[in-house]
């Protein structure tokens, strides 16, 4: 589904990704772990098409097509979803209006009929319950005055509504207490299906107790330096990034 070959990317002239290679197949859940500053977030932003990042070389194929040639919104409509680490507020624009516009943009792109306000309201109410958000959130401004945990659950709700082919979760666990983490993870697990892939980016292993990955990759200095299965994450938790000879800028424990 997603094939990344020798991807290099920089931001403000500074090279962050220095040759990423990664294959992701439908149905798989991949976790990318790494210390702060290793390039984890850059990888997710580049895949989603943030123009602040410049791809300097390499190739990314998504379902056989050149992903890097496509505009951000086109990538989104074709099934790439990014759950943001720090979701931004859009004051005055209701969540409901924002989400319906997004869902209809995708449906239009795929040649499906657009949903009217009543149909969408019904769907959105059901999905909001799935992530334990009061349907009143739909009426509020996008992320306006939401707590950190509410913002993250709101992101997962959007993924459930948009039903992406590839969901990229950028540090979805950060800032969540254990109960909120459980709810968010349940939402992500509900996304798992045979035709959908999930790419999780995280500093800490604790998220992987709730969402069990098929593959774990360690990113350091802009390269994947080690790949393995679930057990790799557990090993990292026990031994820390230092075990792989990586210096974690924050020296934060992997256990979190």
């Amino acid at each position: 589904m997603l094939s990344i070959k020798n991807l290099h990317a920089s931001v403000e002239g500074k090279e962050i990704l220095k040759g990423i290679n990664l294959e992701i197949n439908p149905g798989e859940v991949h976790a990318i772990m790494g210390p702060n500053g290793s390039g984890k977030s850059t990888l997710s932003q580049v895949l989603a098409g943030n123009e602040a990042y410049e791809v300097t070389s390499g190739e990314v194929l998504f379902n056989g097509e050149n992903l890097l040639d496509k505009e951000t919104e086109e990538r989104a409509r074709e099934g790439i979803f990014l759950a943001f680490q720090y979701p931004v507020e859009i004051p005055g624009v209701s969540n409901l209006q924002f989400l319906r516009t997004a869902v209809n943009a995708k449906r239009k792109h795929l040649g499906e009929p657009e949903m009217n306000a009543a149909e969408f309201m019904k769907l959105a109410r059901e999905v909001s319950k799935q992530v334990d958000l009061n349907p009143d959130f739909l009426k509020r401004g996008v992320n306006e005055g939401f707590s950190g945990g509410e913002k993250k659950r709101n992101e997962i709700m959007q993924a459930l509504l948009l039903q992406p082919k590839l969901a990229i979760l950028d540090e979805t666990d950060s800032g969540l207490d254990i109960d909120a983490l459980k709810v968010a993870s349940d939402g992500v697990n509900a996304l798992r299906s045979a035709d959908r892939a999930i790419l999780m980016v995280t500093h800490y292993q604790r998220l992987l107790n709730h969402i069990v990955p098929d593959h774990v990759h360690v990113l350091a200095g802009g390269r994947i330096i080690k790949s393995g299965g679930r057990e790799l994450a557990l090993e990292l938790e026990e031994k820390g990034y230092g075990w792989l000879g990586i210096k974690d800028e924050d020296d934060a424990p992997v256990a979190g």
Binding site: A48, E73, L82, L99, T101
Partner: peptide
């Protein structure tokens, strides 16, 4: 902001 624009576009909404 760029962040607001990117959020919208990442959700499939054109600029």
């Amino acid at each position: 902001s760029d962040e607001q624009m990117f959020l919208c576009r990442q959700r499939g909404i054109d600029a």
